[in-house]
Each structure stands twice: as structure tokens, then as C-alpha cells.
Design a protein around this nucleic acid. Structure first.
Lengths: 248, 248
DNA sequence: TCCCTTTTTTGAACTCGTTCAAAAAAGTCC
DNA sequence: GGACTTTTTTGAACGAGTTCAAAAAAGGGA
């Protein structure tokens, strides 16, 4: 439940190979048997190694889950590219990306809860809010940057600047809903996406209205600040209680 | 990590006494030593009982944490009453309630992360989103109902009806921020509260404008639906995959 | 090739949450 | 008070994540 140990960097071809073997075995088991039955012991056994060996390459079970994040993000990214090239309106782009996100995640719905669970721990390396440096999070937001940047829409600069982050937050919310969604084929989640994307589009138009400028400015300043606070860039290593002096 | 067993109802004065002893010991340790060191064994030992005995009264560690929720909510409620009687504007009422919430939680900041963590598991009885019937959640929202109901403010009925739920969601968000907040005395959280309350007040005014009616309607319908989906009232026991037929 | 360092691998432990059968204590009814 | 039932309490076990010292294997000069 703690596990801040870093996954050892491999120093050898042999090591690289072993690490990959463990990872693939783990992902496979995760998919086939769900989270509960994917124990570290089971992974090691199936991969034909000792338990301790697995821990040499992945400091904790969380680190293994981290790899899952990476993989699904890559899948989502790959799946999104065609849609992003085809569509030009912000609304259509967002709709496609969100639907594809759920498509990608769907095979893992069963254990997504546990996933989100470990991610909620502020000290977990998986937490998407802490550790701005975490590549997954960065890449994940980058997708929304692309989504916004190349869309033709008249959006004020201040809003356009924060929009990727806001959409990323929105997408986290949808995932949270999806985790709890037990409707057939996640019909509710898809419906929610349709409706919220529509609404978001309207709200963005609204917020772009010159009359809204003062409120918008205030809201965006808040968002920017919030974002910085939640993600103390770079060297914040989150030691247990110490990190109290950074009042930057 | 599973633990759906219910905490046994006590049948005896002796039992009642033992249960209370366990609970008090647990809360005390939680406060003094943090979550990590408050193991079931440690609790049992400090209370002078066997480990199995503790499990007889609390089916899992989660059930013990549930009690923590209850306790802090009661504390917050008690602390809020004076402010709610003194203040009449929505803004002032909300500001007080939110600040007091953080005041109440502060002693437990150290292990609040883990708390939120277990709460994120859709199958956990602690999850504030699942189980509308959960008394904590219900009571928690009720506080915001009171907050809204007795405030003098010209708010359209449709918005007024959903506002308690929305404010509850907002308050969950603030708690999430607070959990990650490592600034001295949680200065950032308090500042965030000040700013967001101000902003919310402005947004509520905005949304109350007759011109906003169509968008507002659409948004509120979505919120109402989302709320129902996330909280399948009463008998939805969240069995693994079954609950698929309720399309109400 | 031999020696020394580094990396990989093992196996045995430890902790903690959780379960369960059975012993002990309390309660109940005659 | 005795016999039976129910509740409380115990103690030992299991499975899972994690740690660690030490053995085995690989690398790297000379």
C-alpha cells in the first residue's frame, strides 16, 4: 500500500528481456483473469520466475499497473488519430475521442475500479493529479491539446489555453462514471458522452461571448492556479509529510 | 479488498460495550498514529482483545473507516449549525460550511488519502457515489439542502432543486484538493474555497438569468439523470455484473 | 583465462487483512 | 440449579504484497 520504490532500470539484455516477459504476462493475466486473481505470485509462476525476481523489476504491483495505463493510452492515441484527421469541428473531435476512450478501456472494465482506487492515493505514483511529470498524464493532456489546437472554432485565447486541461478533467469524470456504469454495453456512458459533449460545446460558445469576459477571466485564473497547485512540477517528490516549504 | 460482510449486530450489553471499545480505540489510533500503523492487530492488542474478536464486530477494516466518516460528519454538522443560523445569504452560508468542513477534517489529513482511496472502489461500501441509501451520503447532502433551502436568494426552481446535489459534488471536489494540499495550514485549500464560493455565487446568478433558461434546463436534466444513474436507489446491491435491466 | 564487480535470481521470511472451527461465557427456560 | 441455545472470544491458519540477504550468472578488464 506504500511502495514508493522505483522500478529498477535494467542494465542488461537479459534483464530487459525478463522485464518484458513479466510485463506481458501480467497484462495478459489482468485481461484474462481480472485483477483479483492476478497476484504477484501467479505472474511470477506463469512467467517461470521467482517472486523476488518480479519485484526486482517492478518495485510494486502498482508499477505493473502503471504499465497498463501506458498501454491503454497508446491504444487510445492510435485509435484517435484517424478521427482527428477526419473531423474539424471541436464538437465532433471531442465526441470521437471520448467514445474511443471508452472503447479502449472496455476490456478492462472489470478491474478498472481497483485501478482508479490505487490512483486516488495521493502518494501513489499512479495518481494522475500528483506528479505533473508523469508521462501518462502529460501525454494524456497532450492529446486534448491537439484536439483543441487544430480545431476551427472561435474561442478566446484565454479559454483556448486552459481548454485542454479542462477537457482532460472532463474526461477523467467520464471515466469515473464509466467505472460505475453497469448498464448493458455501457450504454449510459455513451449516452452521457453524447449529451455532455453537446452541452460542453454550447457552454464554450457561451463562455466565448464578450459579455462573459469578466466571469470567464476569473474562472480561468482559478483553473490555472488550481492546475499548478495540484501538479507541483518537477522535483516534488512527495516525501511523507515534509514538503511544506514550497510556497512558490 | 473485498469485504462485503456486514458488521454483526450486537446482541448483548457486553457485546455493545466491546464494539464501542474497539471503535474508540481504532479512532484514537487513527488520529495518533495514522492509517498505516493502525492495523487490525494493533487495535485489538491495544483494546486488549483477540484479533478475531475485532472481526466479529467489524467485518472489515473498511467498516471501521465507515465509522470515521460518520463521526466527522457529525462533528461538521454540529459545527455548522451556528453559522447557518447566523448567516442568511447563500454565499456566506456556503463559505462557512466549507471552511468548517476542512476544519473538521484537518486532524486526519495524514490518512485522508487512503480514505478517499478505499472510497473510490465502486464495490466498496464506503463509496460515496454508489449506494444512495448510505446514511453518510444522504446526511451529507441533507446539510446542503438546508443550506440552500433557508437561504434568501432568487433562484429558479429547477436549479434550486438540483443545487444541493451540485454543491455536494463541489464539496467532494474541494476535499479531493485538500487531500493533495501540502501547503502550510492548508492555506491553499482555504483560498480555493474563498475563490470558488465567490465564483459559484456569480455563476448561480448568471444561470438564474432568464436568457439562460434553455441551456440551464438541458444541463439540469443531465445532472438529474446522472445523479439517478450513479445512485440506483434502494435495492441495487451491485452484484458483479447483473444489474442491467433497470432502464428507468 | 582468472579475478573482481555488477546484475540477476532465488528462497525464505515478515506483515497485514481476513476466515473459521471450536472453546468459553452469557443468557434462557424449566 | 441444570441443560440447552446463543453470543462472544480465542487461536491458529491462509493468501497476498513486500523485503532482504545471499547464491548464481554475466560482464569486464589484466
Amino acid at each position: 500500500m506504500k511502495s514508493s520504490k522505483k522500478s529498477t532500470t535494467t542494465k542488461t539484455a537479459k534483464g530487459e528481456q525478463t522485464k518484458a516477459l513479466i510485463l506481458n504476462t501480467a497484462l495478459e493475466m489482468l485481461h484474462e483473469r481480472g485483477y483479483e486473481h492476478t497476484t504477484m505470485r501467479a505472474i511470477a509462476e506463469k512467467a517461470g520466475l521467482s517472486l523476488g525476481n518480479a519485484y526486482h523489476y517492478f518495485g510494486s504491483k502498482d508499477h505493473l499497473i502503471q504499465a497498463f495505463y501506458d498501454r491503454t493510452h497508446e491504444d487510445h492515441l492510435r485509435a484517435s488519430l484517424p478521427a482527428l484527421q477526419k473531423e474539424s469541428s471541436l464538437k465532433a473531435r471531442l465526441l470521437s475521442v471520448m467514445r474511443l476512450k471508452i472503447d479502449t478501456l472496455e476490456p478492462y472494465h472489470e478491474f478498472a475500479g481497483v485501478l482508479f482506487q490505487t490512483a486516488a492515493d495521493p502518494y501513489s505514483p499512479l495518481n494522475p493529479f500528483a506528479h505533473a511529470a508523469a508521462p501518462v498524464r502529460r501525454n494524456s493532456i497532450k492529446l486534448f491539446e491537439d484536439l483543441v489546437a487544430e480545431s476551427k472554432a472561435r474561442i478566446p485565447h484565454d479559454l483556448r489555453a486552459e481548454l485542454p486541461y479542462l477537457l482532460w478533467l472532463y474526461h477523467m469524470g467520464i471515466i469515473l462514471f464509466w467505472i460505475h456504469d453497469s448498464s448493458r454495453k455501457r450504454a449510459r456512458t455513451y449516452r452521457l458522452i453524447d449529451q455532455t459533449v453537446d452541452l460542453l460545446d454550447k457552454l464554450i460558445s457561451l463562455a466565448s461571448n464578450p459579455l462573459m469576459r469578466p466571469v470567464r477571466k476569473k474562472a480561468l485564473r482559478l483553473v490555472a492556479e488550481l492546475r499548478d497547485d495540484l501538479t507541483p512540477d518537477s522535483s516534488a517528490k512527495v516525501s511523507d509529510e515534509e514538503a511544506e516549504s514550497e510556497d512558490q
